[in-house]
Write a protein that binds this DNA or RNA. Structure first.
Lengths: 224, 224
DNA sequence: ACCGAACCGTAACGTACGGTACGGCTTCCT
DNA sequence: AGGAAGCCGTACCGTACGTTACGGTTCGGT
């Protein structure tokens, strides 16, 4: 898929790679496990040994090392697609719940070892400009959550609960209020543990701040 | 200061290596230049060629590759120490100017090619847990600006202009409002150009939002 | 003028790792 | 049963790169 390897079948219908088989998925999980182990050396030999498969098979399935990493990133991305927010009635309370859910979900994603390892990998590759791992990670992280949250914001505006001109700007503010310095600190190796309760509290605080800035009706800030 | 990171206070004397000589500084500048070139392969041979010095000298001066990179990061960090904010009278207007200055400075730092390259390098090393480049970058980036801004916030509170309980939490909010998604997007290779005017505008917007959340007296938003 | 230190340029060495080849085993099809 | 295909384990190859070694040149001190 990646470089100019022999152009045989797999890329006909699917935009990229077809769904991996169960065995292939096991290999990709091995890659994910390997890259989360501190100082984990992500060599083809290590992957083959960890997945109990031969290197020959790795190259047959994924082309080259870059193809394997790309497939791994996409594999992980495909399982993050969850948390559909069905448009409910959307009053002030449900909007607040939705925002809190988004913030909490985002915080737990970026603080997960998998996300940290994946982002570090993609950033390393972005430095050498090889491959487009960075774009894939961005598309399935920052931009994916943006595309899922912005409709909620616009519905909130349509319902008279929010007030803003630029949806993108409003989303970026929410993004900043929720994420703050968490991601960069974790990527740089700062030991920063986010308990579930802490995530919930931070998500609620970020939501309150966002509503204070963009809410039309004051959300009763004194209430706990 | 927040978590249990060993962030010892801003050392006055050189904590590690002594000041590099002019020739050594030239070598370190060569490293910096090299790591900013897209796809720049940061090999010892490339550094030696770029700096017109022998590899033997590199090893004599810096020990090994890691020592060279560490010295480079510290070298760059040592020149970012600028922008002292002398405590002026601190009325509402000067506080706002200070905050805008901090936000604009931070945005221009994180969007500079040098910062991007340095952070990518440190993040790559944090993945392999080797060395403490991540901690150095963190201490001279996120924590340094925190230590410089927090006194301003507390002075603002003492002057009755701001209202908050937790200085650290207030700073992190400001950090998030100013940085938003800029750093992670740049690190992942997103093409995101920040013009000087755009930085000034974003910094002003972040400051307004921060004051809306933490300001005690409404800063007269209608006035230009 | 002489000596030694510092340094440059380059060659050489060792290893790690991406990629390939091959023998043997299992499975499935006919 | 027999053959073919897929795959595992391992040995192997070529290259890139960190690190070391060495000859040649410059320069300050005596």
């Amino acid at each position: 898929m990646v470089s100019a390897t022999k152009s045989f079948a797999p890329e006909t219908a699917a935009p990229d790679a077809a769904e991996p088989t169960a065995r292939q998925a096991a290999v990709l999980d091995a890659v994910l496990a390997l890259m989360q182990e501190s100082g984990g050396q992500l060599t083809m030999t290590a992957v083959a040994r960890r997945a109990s498969c031969s290197k020959e098979t790795l190259y047959k399935w994924f082309g080259d090392r870059d193809g394997l990493l790309t497939a791994t990133v996409q594999w992980q991305a495909s399982r993050v697609r969850a948390g559909r927010y069905d448009r409910q009635k959307l009053d002030a309370s449900s909007l607040r719940d939705s925002l809190r859910g988004f913030a909490a979900n985002w915080l737990s994603v970026i603080s997960s070892p998998t996300s940290i390892a994946l982002n570090r990998l993609a950033i390393s590759h972005a430095a050498s400009k090889q491959s487009n791992l960075g774009q894939i990670v961005l598309d399935n992280g920052r931009f994916a959550i943006g595309n899922r949250l912005k409709p909620v914001l616009e519905e909130g505006r349509a319902a008279g609960l929010l007030q803003f001109d630029d949806t993108e700007a409003a989303f970026r503010t929410f993004f900043g209020l929720a994420g703050r310095d968490v991601q960069i600190r974790l990527l740089l190796g700062d030991t920063l543990t986010l308990e579930k309760s802490e995530i919930a509290r931070d998500a609620a605080a970020a939501t309150d701040q966002f509503l204070a800035l963009y809410g039309r009706t004051e959300p009763k800030p004194a209430a706990a």
